[in-house]
């Protein structure tokens, strides 16, 4: 085991990390969304989406259509929420620009999302709040990330496994 070999290994690791980062950012550019792939965290859209399902977003449409499933983030609450558009209104604001206002609801929730929105706002704003609309779906795969973020044993186990594999594959 010489220093050269170790440097190559380090370079490989850096390559893998930067490729993943470039892929993520490139996807963000193509879809015009800050988080083009999201993992469902709650059961509010069941039975369509369960916890751990992966959703692929698209954010290049000027307006969202009624019935679309959107991912939105309310100002001050950095948790992305996946819900369906129940109503949409196009209105002009003070500077004569057309804005789209949305009311959303989770399929599995009894009422609409009025109580989830920012203080004193009765609608979501298409341009300001919406991260993207759901275009494609992959079941269950994202559950790994939920396990890692919510279960400390899973996190430690994964770290241990990675350390073990780097120790053992040195030949």
């Amino acid at each position: 085991m010489n220093i050269r070999q170790q440097l190559v290994q380090l370079l490989n690791l850096a390559m893998v990390l930067s490729t993943a980062f470039m892929f993520w950012k490139g996807l963000g550019l193509v879809t015009n969304s800050n988080s083009p792939i999201v993992v469902v965290l709650s059961g509010s859209m069941e039975p369509a989406f369960q916890r751990g399902d992966i959703l692929f977003l698209w954010n290049r449409d000027k307006y969202v259509d009624i019935g679309d499933v959107v991912v939105y983030e309310v100002k001050g609450k950095p948790i992305p929420i996946v819900h369906r558009v129940l109503r949409e209104h196009k209105v002009t604001n003070k500077d004569r620009k057309v804005r789209q206002l949305l009311l959303t609801k989770g399929d599995n929730n009894p009422t609409d999302d009025l109580s989830l929105y920012a203080h004193k706002s009765n609608y979501l704003d298409r341009d300001e709040d919406v991260l993207g609309t759901v275009k494609a779906y992959l079941p269950k795969v994202g559950y790994v990330t939920i396990l890692i973020t919510e279960n400390k044993y899973a996190k430690l186990g994964l770290l241990g496994l990675m350390a073990l594999s780097t120790l053992l594959t040195r030949e």
Binding site: A48, D65, I66, G67, R84, L86, R87, E88, H89, K90, V91, T92, V98, D107
Partner: peptide
């Protein structure tokens, strides 16, 4: 399948200015 009964009416902004479920 998710089916929804939608009413669409024109507003001063657009012909499909409002869609409600």
């Amino acid at each position: 399948l998710f089916v929804q009964l939608v009413a669409e009416y024109p507003t001063s902004v657009a012909d499909d200015g409002a869609k409600v479920t």
